[in-house]
Design a protein around this nucleic acid. Sequence first.
DNA 1: CAGTACGCCTGGTAGC
DNA 2: TGCTACCAGGCGTACT
Length: 284
Amino acid sequence: MPELPEVESIKIKLDKYLVGHTIKKVKVNYRKSLKEGEKKVEGGKVKGIRRFGKVLVIDLDNNYSLVIHIKLTGQLIYKGPNLKKAPEISKKVVGGVPGKHTHVVFELDKDGRLYYNDYRKFGWIKVVKTKDVEDIDFIKKLGPEPLDGLTFEKFREITKSTKRAIKTLLMDQSKIGGVGNIYANDALWLAKIHPETPANNLSSKKLKKLYESIEEVLKKGLKYEGASELAFVMPSGEEGSYQDHTLVYGREGETCKRCKKEEIEKKKVGGRGTYFCPNCQNKK
DNA sequence: CAGTACGCCTGGTAGC
DNA sequence: TGCTACCAGGCGTACT
């Protein structure tokens, strides 16, 4: 599911394609995706793209911004002059572009288009004044980011303050911003920590290893431009490739890459599918 | 206050 | 084959 590396990969592409374009018209096909205010962005020229955790912000030169959370299956697909050759659109773009899951269409100048697809309709787009972006609830509550601002001291403080399962804590956006299921699973495997270990039971040594592991898996995710499982694609319509390089995520039944002794197990932790090696990641 | 269950959605899949 | 029932999953909300 789109997490920090996936959303950052989208951001990098949007920076390339969108900046300089003017939004001419916005068409909303499904009201829950964009509730109100779309007229306010018409006529605005894209100045830049920002990311806060898993949220994207498109800043315009008319003092308004688009804040976008693509949740599980949202897709932002660009067509226009800044994408020279039309790439092959992944079949993960269910229904096509535009298609039956295209809920919002941004018509741009120079005959460009930005399509918002979302087949499960969990994602949202908000129109807010640029100066108010950091005041919207989701961003205001967001914890520090692993690759930008989360120090080890802060990480230790967060983990020491609760007995919740470490994996659930890693995915709590109000504690740490940007980590979701894929990278939480992989970081815990890399640090050899059982996902259900109470956060405040981890030794300093384990914590340090986990802190470094989170950074490592996120960087690897960025290198491969995110994991295209479910519906993640970049604005070009192309997939990322981290799904081919996950450490444990999605590898139920496969032999552990490290110990080569046990098979990866899957169980629910805090209601989420969780993968781990019962040999490497013991509870001690 | 901290922690958890539920609802939002639809494509995919298991079971018949 | 075709039908139904159920599930995943980020996050807001309601509840304990």
